[in-house]
Design a protein around this nucleic acid. Structure first.
Lengths: 167, 167
DNA sequence: TATTGTTATACTCTATAACTATA
DNA sequence: TATAGTTATAGAGTATAACAATA
C-alpha cells in the first residue's frame, strides 16, 4: 500500500471540492516535509505524464529505458542490460517477449557463448525510439523546463542523481 | 516492469566489479537525463532507507503517512484519510486492519453517521509515531541534510512539490 | 438514490527457487 | 561447478465492480 495519487488538501482545488460531511480541509502540508512522500508524489505525476506523451508508441518508462540502453550499447546480452537497469532476470523475460513480439527488438544467440542472447533494436525499434525521444523532448521535458526553468531543472536532476548514487 | 534498483554503470563501484564476459562498462549515463528515471531511482533509495531507519517500529512509508495524518486530523473517517493520501478505499481496509490489529489505531462508529468509521491513534500508536519521527529525523533526514546541505534540501523539496502540484 | 466500509477480484511490479542448456 | 535464460510462483501495490448497512 503505497502513497499514490494523493490529493493535496491544501490546494485551492481541494478546498473548492470539500465534501459536505466536513467543511474543513484536512491538514496534509506537513507530509510534504518528508522527502519520500514528495518524491513519490512527483514520481507518479511524471510517470503518468511520460506515459501520456508516449502513448502513440505504447511504451512504458521501463521499455523506453531498455530500448535506450540497447541503442547505446549494442552487442550486450540480457543479463547485462537487465542488471544495469535494476531489473531482475526473470522479470526481464516478459518485457523482452513483448518488445520482440512487437518487432521492436531481437534476441540473437551469441556465437562465443551459446547460452547468451545478444540484444539488438530492429529498424522498427530504432525508428520507434527516435519518435519516442522526440515526443518526450517536445512534450514531457519541455513541460518540465517551462515549469522549473532550465537552471532549476538541471539542479533537480543533479540532486536526484546524487541521492541515487550516494545516499 | 519498472525501473528499479539500477546499477549505475558509470560509478567506480560498477567499474571495479565489471564481469569477465565483457570488460567495458555499459553506457547508462544518458538515462539520468530523463527526470522519470532519476526520480524513480532516487525514490527507491529513499524508501529503502526510510524502511531501514524505521525498522524497529515495522512501519512502511504508507503506514507512517496514515498515522501522521491521523495525529494532525482527529475525528476523520476512512474515506477522508484514504482520499487525502491517494489510497483507494478498498485498499485502505487491509492497511487499517493491520494497524488496528497491532493496537496502533482504532475505528470508532460515528454517532452522527453510523456508516462512518472515525479513525484515531491509540496511545500506543501515538507513542510509536513519536518514536518513528525521532528515528527519521535523527537518521533518515539527517543523512539527507548531510548529503545535500540545508539550502539545497529545501530547494529539492519545493521543486518536488511544484511538480506534484502543477505538472 | 447516494454514500461508507467492505469483499472479491484482477492486473502489474517485484522477488526467489529451481530448471535447461551451455560453459 | 558456474552461468544465461527461463519457468513457476508468491507477495506487494493498485484498480474496478458490487454488496450490506445507513443516509
Amino acid at each position: 500500500m503505497a502513497v499514490s495519487r494523493p490529493i493535496a488538501a491544501g490546494t485551492a482545488r481541494a478546498r473548492r471540492s470539500a465534501k459536505a460531511s466536513s467543511e474543513a480541509p484536512l491538514l496534509a502540508d506537513h507530509l510534504s516535509q518528508y522527502l519520500g512522500y514528495s518524491l513519490k508524489r512527483a514520481q507518479l505525476r511524471i510517470f503518468d505524464d511520460f506515459m501520456r506523451c508516449v502513448a502513440p508508441l505504447q511504451l512504458t518508462p521501463a521499455q523506453f529505458s531498455v530500448m535506450l540502453l540497447l541503442e547505446k550499447n549494442p552487442g550486450r546480452n540480457q543479463t547485462e542490460i537487465a542488471t544495469t537497469l535494476g531489473i531482475l532476470k526473470p522479470n526481464f523475460v516478459a518485457l523482452l517477449d513483448d518488445l520482440e513480439k512487437r518487432g521492436l527488438c531481437l534476441r540473437v544467440r551469441s556465437v562465443n557463448d551459446r547460452r547468451s542472447h545478444i540484444l539488438a533494436l530492429t529498424e522498427k525499434g530504432a525508428a520507434a525510439l527516435v519518435r519516442a525521444k522526440k515526443l518526450i523532448a517536445a512534450k514531457h521535458e519541455a513541460r518540465l523546463r517551462a515549469l522549473l526553468g532550465d537552471d532549476k531543472r538541471a539542479l533537480l536532476l543533479s540532486m536526484l542523481e546524487t541521492i541515487a548514487r550516494d545516499f
